[in-house]
Amino acid sequence: MTDAIQDEIIREFDGLEWLDKYGLLIASAKKLEPMDEDSRTDENSISGCQSKVWIQSYKRDGKLNFNLDSDAMITKGIMALLLRVVNNRYPQEIANINLYFIEEIGLKSNLSPARSNGLESIIKRIKEIAKNEALKDNV
C-alpha cells in the first residue's frame, strides 16, 4: 500500500548524495519545534539510543499525535520525517503502518537493533502507544 506523505518524502530525498541527505535532515530538525525542558524527562525518553530521544503523545478528535525530540540533529531530522508520516492518524492506522520510506531514502541501516540511534526502538514505542490507544478505542 502506498502512502502520499511517505511518497512525498521519498521524492524529496531522491538522488541526493549522503551529505545532502544529512543536510536535509538537519534542516528538517531545525524546523521542528523543540520539546519543552520539563517534558524531557527520563520517563519520556527512549533507551537504546546513542543520542537522547524523547516522546510524548496526545489524542485529538480520536486521532493520535506525537511530539518527538532529540539532542542530535540528524536523529531529530529523522524524527521530523516520522512525525510527518504518523501524526494525525487513527491509532489502528499507526499500529499497522508500513514505514517503507525509511528503506527507500537509505536509512534502513539505521533500523537494525544494534544501530546506535535507536530508530527501531522509537518506531516500536510509537506502535506500542498506537496499539494501546486502539485497544482503548475498541473497549
Binding site: 549522503w18 551529505l19 544529512y22 538537519i26 546513542q50 543520542s51 539532542d71 542530535a72 540533529m73 540528524i74 536523529t75 546506535s116 540511534n117
Partner: peptide, 14 residues
C-alpha cells in the same frame, strides 16, 4: 553545540 553522534555520521560519509 554539535552532538558527537551527528559529527560521527557526517565524518563517516566523508
Amino acid at each position: 553545540q554539535i552532538h558527537h553522534y551527528d559529527a560521527g555520521l557526517i565524518m563517516d560519509k566523508m
